[in-house]
């Protein structure tokens, strides 16, 4: 079986002075290549913390994480950026686009970080914007795009460099129903085309039908 993500007994404890908060408590799960899974749960249930640990943004307190069979749990801060660069694309509820950069430049930036030449990265970025139907808005600044368009730029950015895993945090959270559907549909299609996987943290029950599996989280644990 080709697993994109495997986590074993994953735990994250936040400590503030003498107070301890267990955000994720002994989560074990696997996500296969090509799967689009959702993580649902109430606020404060640990969904975002779990997603951050999947994406090697946050280090677990205990447990292990394997990405395509590669143990990444104990990698150093210097090694982790290269793991993220190799495997992940991220989509955030707040889009997190650079306001001074055009849609094209926002998509091109991660490709340049990955070492691609400006010319090559530019051509690829136009291609990605075309896939999310935003080619004609390539030179628009984010402030001149609608919420749905911004999120589609964020999807194009997440897909830049063909990541094997897309991690999305409430990608439809700031969008109306129609825009939200279009975003998830686009994401789903592009994940399938790239034979990638996607983990979507969401409260939005309207996108359930686009997901292969859904995990429900409560108090830091996955409920059956």
């Amino acid at each position: 079986m080709d697993f994109a993500i495997q986590v074993e007994d994953l735990t994250k404890v936040y400590r503030e002075n003498s107070t301890e908060v267990v955000a994720v408590n002994g989560v074990s799960l696997s996500i296969q290549r090509g799967e689009v899974v959702g993580i649902m749960g109430p606020s404060g249930s640990g969904k975002t913390t779990l997603l951050s640990m999947f994406g090697c943004i946050l280090k677990p307190t205990a447990g292990s994480i394997k990405i395509y069979g590669e143990e990444v749990t104990n990698l150093s801060d210097k090694e982790l950026p290269f793991v993220r660069r190799k495997y992940f694309g991220f989509i955030f509820q707040g889009f997190n686009l650079f306001q001074p950069l055009s849609a094209l430049e926002n998509v091109r930036l991660p490709l340049e970080i990955k070492g691609m030449s400006k010319k090559e990265a530019g051509a690829l970025s136009i291609n990605l914007l075309e896939k999310v139907n935003l080619k004609e808005r390539a030179y628009f600044l984010p402030r001149n795009l609608s919420g749905g368009e911004k999120q589609r730029v964020a999807i194009a950015r997440a897909l830049a460099g063909n990541p094997l895993i897309i991690l999305a945090d409430e990608p439809t959270g700031n969008l109306d129903h129609k825009s939200g559907e279009l975003v998830v549909k686009t994401l789903r299609e592009l994940v399938m085309i790239n034979n990638a996987s996607a983990v979507i943290v969401t409260h939005d029950s309207r996108i359930f039908h686009s997901l292969d599996r859904v995990f429900y989280m409560e108090d830091g644990k996955i409920r059956a």
Partner: peptide
């Protein structure tokens, strides 16, 4: 002001040096 965007760059593989 751009902390989130810098964080996003780090998430997608930018090093601190970038």
């Amino acid at each position: 002001e751009y902390l989130k965007e810098f964080g996003t760059l780090k998430a997608i593989g930018a090093t601190n040096l970038n």
